[in-house]
């Protein structure tokens, strides 16, 4: 009992490894928290614009929600393949890990393609950063801001994962590296959960 209490106290007093995790994982979590705050700021300002608005468009009339749900399906599936890759890497099956990372890259690329098509369709219908045909002009601004920033994160993730897959194929990747890339990818999926609900559905 006393020993357990002493151990707990030691963990909170700093020491060599207070989080009982490697520095890379701790730094990745800190990055996720700070990047999450960036998106929280965007979504809070979006909420502010929604409260101010008199004529916020009905999302179902602007977007095909089934199409957006299909994008969500692709991203969630890519998260599952990424988690499977991390699991395989931890078990030392680096070849299988590389294959699952590749499947994740494919998922990310499909998501980006679908998002590019969505942007193209809306731009063709007259949507711009400051104007759109559906009412409140902040609608266009927040659409491009939120999906654009998220999309840039997806693109970054696809590049990181492609490099990880190549390194895994050459036997250069370590389980830790795949886990860090996975944490970033799941964060991208996590952010989409908020954008999908708050921007497309509410």
């Amino acid at each position: 009992m006393a020993q357990a209490a002493q151990q707990a106290a030691d963990r909170w007093s700093g020491g060599v490894c207070p989080f009982d995790a490697g520095w890379r994982k701790v730094m990745m979590w800190w990055f996720i928290v700070t990047d999450g705050l960036l998106f929280a700021g965007f979504l809070a300002s979006y909420g502010y614009a929604r409260l101010l608005s008199f004529d916020w468009p009905d999302q179902a009339s602007v977007f095909s929600l089934r199409y957006i749900a299909a994008m969500t399906f692709v991203l969630i599936t890519s998260s599952a393949t990424m988690a499977t890759a991390v699991h395989a890497a931890r078990e030392g099956r680096m070849r299988a890990a590389g294959t699952f990372v590749l499947a994740t890259v494919a998922g990310g690329a499909i998501f980006l393609g679908m998002q590019a098509f969505e942007w193209r369709t809306l731009i063709a219908e007259g949507a711009r950063l400051a104007v759109n045909p559906w009412g409140d002009r902040a609608f266009g601004a927040f659409f491009f801001l939120l999906t654009g920033f998220h999309g840039s994160h997806v693109l970054t993730g696809v590049i990181i994962l492609a490099v990880t897959a190549i390194r895994a194929a050459r036997g250069l990747s370590k389980p830790d590296g795949i886990e860090m890339a996975g944490l970033y990818w799941h964060f991208v999926d996590l952010v989409w959960v908020f954008i999908f609900t708050l921007f497309y559905l509410l």
């Binding site: 989080f19 998260s79 599952a80 799941h186 999926d189 959960v193 908020f194």
Partner: peptide, 26 residues
């Protein structure tokens, strides 16, 4: 919608990101 969103986010963080296996500090 907010409850479903929170549930989905928690599941991703806990199971995919393995947050439930980390130390209390994280």
């Amino acid at each position: 919608m907010l409850a479903a969103m929170a549930t989905k986010a928690s599941m991703i963080a806990a199971n995919f990101m393995h947050l439930r296996l980390e130390r209390a500090g994280i």
